[in-house]
Simulated assay, not measured.
Amino acid sequence: MPKRFVVAASEFPGLPRFTAGFELAEALTAASQHLHETLTPDGTLRTAARLAVDILPGADHAGISEFERGSTPRTLACTDDVVRAAEAGHTGGEEHAHWDRLWDSPVASIADSEADDGGDALAALGLRSALSLRLRADRRRLTVLTAYARKPGAFDEDATRIGRLFTAHVSIALDTATVHEQLTEAMHTRDLIGQATGILMERQGVDAAAAFDSLVRASQRENVKLRAIARRIVDTHNTP
């Protein structure tokens, strides 16, 4: 189950809320810098949710959720509990029907939750309009960034255009953070397995190849990952 984060929708230094007089390229450049300062996918998602409120004209709240076909959305990051309630369907369990359009389109919106297909759930939370943008998609899972506004009709064509540009930056930063996390994990795993192999060499009086084979056999016998076996050996060795 993905972690859930709530972050304050405060402005970033050097990134005022987007206005007509603030150059789009400058705003996106500043946003991209903040996104690429994160080192983990979770950090990127938290930053993106906060930035969305600052950079998308009309946005009051924002959240990033993941869902599979026919499943309840899981909030990965949000600016406040209003978004958490809206995206988790805590107000009567109503589905976000407009999100279904994101399987085939990069954008879906609700102009007015009291008259459009947003149902009573959003309106009950004081959210009148929404702009949803696809971040990631495969055959069974979507990751969606949604900006919410307390006013109806808050998101026009300009907001949609800016949103699509912004999510492109978010997607690149998310991919970069994911690769960084995977490489870091791989390095830690290599070091851990190396430590465990050294312990077994000393304990069993064997060479490195035989010690590694012993780790592999234990992993297969217990049906657990090699990293877990190595961690157990290292932790046991280091316990007084």
Rank of each mutant, 00 (worst) to 15 (best):
T79D: 06
R140A: 14
H90I: 04
L56S: 08
D81E: 15
I162D: 06
A159L: 07
H180F: 12
A86I: 00
E94A: 12
A97L: 15
S71Y: 07
F67T: 04
I110T: 01
L102Q: 03
D104I: 07
E157C: 02
V170D: 04
R136S: 08
G126H: 10
S105V: 00
S71K: 13
L174V: 03
V179T: 10
G118F: 02
D156L: 06
S105C: 12
A173F: 03
S109P: 01
L102K: 06
A62I: 00
D81S: 14
L122I: 01
T143S: 11
L133A: 03
W99I: 02
V170Q: 09
A149S: 15
E94T: 07
R101H: 12
A168I: 00
V83A: 13
S65N: 07
V170K: 06
A147D: 01
D116E: 12
R128D: 00
A154H: 04
T143H: 09
R134Q: 09
T176M: 09
L174W: 07
E66Y: 08
P57I: 00
F155D: 00
G126D: 07
A59Q: 02
E87S: 12
R140T: 13
A159N: 04
V107K: 06
L127C: 03
D116V: 03
G70S: 09
L56C: 06
R139I: 06
A108H: 03
D158I: 05
A123W: 01
D60S: 14
I110M: 10
V179N: 11
L122W: 10
D117M: 10
A97I: 09
H98V: 07
S65F: 06
L122H: 13
I55V: 15
R161N: 11
L102D: 02
L56I: 15
A154G: 06
S113Y: 02
D116R: 07
A111G: 13
K151V: 11
S132P: 02
R84W: 10
G118V: 00
T91Q: 14
I64M: 07
G126T: 06
P73A: 12
S129W: 03
W103V: 05
A121K: 10
R128G: 03
E114K: 13
A177T: 01
G118N: 04
R101S: 12
H90C: 12
D138Q: 09
E114R: 15
A85E: 10
R134H: 09
R161Q: 11
A123Y: 05
L102T: 05
T79R: 07
A121R: 11
A149C: 10
A123M: 05
D80G: 09
L102M: 08
L135E: 00
D117I: 11
P73I: 01
D156G: 15
L165E: 08
D60G: 15
P152M: 10
P106Y: 08
A115R: 15
R150W: 04
I55S: 01
G118K: 01
E94I: 05
H98I: 05
A88F: 03
